Every structure is written in C-alpha cells, then in structure tokens.
Computed example of a mutant assay.
Amino acid sequence: MPAPVMPEITLQGIHVLGRDNNPSFPKKLEGKVAIITGGAGGIGEATVRLFARQGAKVIIADVEDSLGTVLANSLSPSSVTFVHCDVSIEEDIENLISSTISRYGRLDILFNNAGVLGNQSKHKSILNFDAEEFDQVMKVNVKGVALGMKHAARVMVPRGTGCIISTASVAGVMGGLGPHAYTASKHAIVGLTKNTSCELGRYGIRVNCISPFGVATSMLVNAWRNKGVEKEDEEKEDFMDIKRVVPCEEEVEKMEEFVRSLANLKGQTLRPKDIAEAALFLASDESKYISGHNLVVDGGVTTSRNCVGL
C-alpha cells in the first residue's frame, strides 16, 4: 500500500519549510552588495556564507589571503570575492570600497567585523598598562571601524540608502568582561555607532552594532588557551597567529561550556551562525526602522552578572 501523500503546508502561498533552499521564498538580501571585514573566519565566515545564501553579492575583506581566497572559491565565484584589506590602513579601505563600486556599481551593506582581542593573559591589570598594545588594539578595532564608516558613507550618501553594522561586544556594554584595551575599544564602537547613526540618518543610512558574548571562534579559543600563564620574556601576543591555528573539537566544546555556564539563558549554545543571523536581521529590510541600536546577543549575561575573570 503506498504511503499517504502529505499536503503541502503553505503560508500566504509561500512554502514554510526549507526557506533557504526554496526558490519560491524571497531571499532577504537579493540584489544587495555587502562587504564583510574579517570575513575569512569565525563570525565573519559564518556571515559570508549566510549572506551569500540570502542572495547578496559578498566581498570578503581580510588580511588572511589564503583563508579568504579558499572561502571565496568554495562558494559561488560570481557572488563571492576576496579582497586583501588591513582595516587599520586607510588606503586598504579606500581600495576595498572603490573595487566594490567598480565591480558592482553600488554598496548596500558594510559589516565592520574585523577586530583583535589583545592580550588575554593575566597581565591585564591597569597597573601593567601596555601603551603599545593599547594602540594596536585601538588601531584595528576602533580606527578600522571608523575608516569603514567613513568610506562606506561616502558612497552611500549620494544614493540615500545603506546599512552599516559593526561588531562590538558585551565588553562594550558593561565593565569586568574583558581586558582594558579590548573593553575600551568595544565601548568606542558602541559610541561611534550611536554618533554616526545621528549624522547619517538624514541620508537614509542605518548604523547599528552587535555585541556578542563569547563565541568559540579560533581567535578566542587560541587567545584563552594560555590564559593566566606567565610568559618568561613578556613577549607580545601575535594577534594574527591566534586566528590561524585551528583549535581541536575538545577545546571548542570546553569554551562553549564555559560560556553556557555564565549565561542566564540555559539550554542554548552561542555559535558564529547566531551572530551571523543577527547581522542578517540588521542588514535586511526586516530592521528597516532600526538605527543607532546595539543588538546584544549574550544569553542574558549582561543582565545578571557584573564580573567575569577580572
């Protein structure tokens, strides 16, 4: 006896199941052009993949040439490209924006996601303030975001539309959630977001940021691997090397468990795709009246705690 045929479930004539792969369901970023800095790995990579699935033309901007090229080649060559870009160098940002305009004729979305953690070891007391490290963290995390906003706005203002998103952190929401340099940089990103949204709103440009709690990316896992271990010669961490090393599954799970233990919301695990989904919401027309907002994705940790390891 043949199996019964189940009726198709529809909502207003649109299939409910399989939305990402269902051609009858509109893609949220169809026809949009998006730049994602720090797009070669972690949160950036997850966002590149999601934006591409949602119909966007995506430019991966990163200093990791091999990782960025491999990612672009693994996706559709007609919709995803890689451009080398150090966000702390204005000429690189200018080239990134101009090459995007040359290729696609427009820029709809800039996701300022590139950033560094700084030294996560026990040497983070203000008594041991390292001015050189502070400058390096601020140069990438804050100057890089400001330069991205500047040059994206220059091409968005004449069109009277656009969306700028930046990755901040729960360390930019409250104190006690990170080292001083990193915390200062993330507070600055939230401030830049609010200030820039005030200026650019008159041109129809939305400016928002996302503040994740700890996401077990390679960068974070590697930075925390030796947390609390003194270095004999006080040498600086190589901010780029901690991004290249792929941690083992056990290390990732350990980090995820640590984050779960701190969050107020139980039963869920924060992963890069969750931040990518938040970026998709802010980039799409679903958030068309949201600007100057800091979208906190933290499982309630900033509502229930005031100190983590500091």
Rank of each mutant, 00 (worst) to 15 (best):
S304C: 13
V70I: 13
V5L: 10
I242L: 04
I60D: 01
S88T: 14
G204T: 00
G55D: 15
P212Q: 02
R271M: 14
N208E: 08
A3D: 11
V80T: 05
T10E: 14
A263M: 14
I101E: 12
A72T: 02
I14K: 04
I101K: 00
L270N: 07
I35Y: 10
I164M: 02
V301E: 03
V116G: 08
N112C: 15
F134W: 14
H151Q: 10
E235K: 08
R225I: 07
H187L: 11
E132D: 15
E64H: 06
M1P: 13
V229I: 15
V207G: 12
L310R: 04
T217H: 03
V58M: 01
E234Y: 07
L50C: 07
G201V: 04
V145C: 13
R106K: 15
I43F: 03
D130H: 06
D274H: 04
A184W: 00
E132W: 02
R49S: 09
S197Y: 05
G148K: 02
L282V: 12
A283W: 03
G162D: 12
T269A: 14
H15N: 15
S78H: 10
N95S: 12
L71F: 01
C248I: 08
T167G: 13
E94P: 03
I165C: 12
L17I: 10
A153M: 12
M156D: 11
S24H: 10
C163Q: 08
A181G: 07
S287E: 03
R19T: 15
Q54D: 03
N113S: 10
I36M: 06
G267A: 09
V137T: 09
G144I: 04
G191E: 09
V63D: 00
T183V: 02
I189W: 02
E45P: 06
N112A: 13
V252L: 15
V58K: 01
L295K: 02
D92R: 00
S121R: 04
L177M: 14
G292M: 04
S284F: 01
K266Y: 14
G13M: 12
V252H: 05
S74V: 08
D86L: 03
S79F: 00
G42H: 04
A216S: 12
G144H: 05
I36F: 00
L270Q: 07
H180E: 12
H151D: 05
G38E: 03
T196N: 09
S76H: 09
I275S: 05
G39L: 10
A146D: 09
V259F: 00
I97N: 09
I9T: 10
N226Q: 11
E30R: 12
G214C: 05
R202Q: 11
P272L: 03
Q54E: 14
F111L: 13
S88H: 07
A278I: 06
Y203F: 07
D62A: 05
R305H: 11
D274R: 00
F258P: 00
K139V: 10
F82T: 00
K28C: 10
G39F: 08
I242Y: 02
C163F: 06
L96M: 06
L262N: 06
N112G: 09
E232V: 14
F51N: 02
M6I: 15
E250T: 12
S169M: 04
L265K: 02
E234L: 13
L262Q: 05
M6S: 14
V5G: 03
K227L: 14
E256Y: 02
S99L: 01
A278W: 02
G299N: 08
M138C: 13
G55A: 14
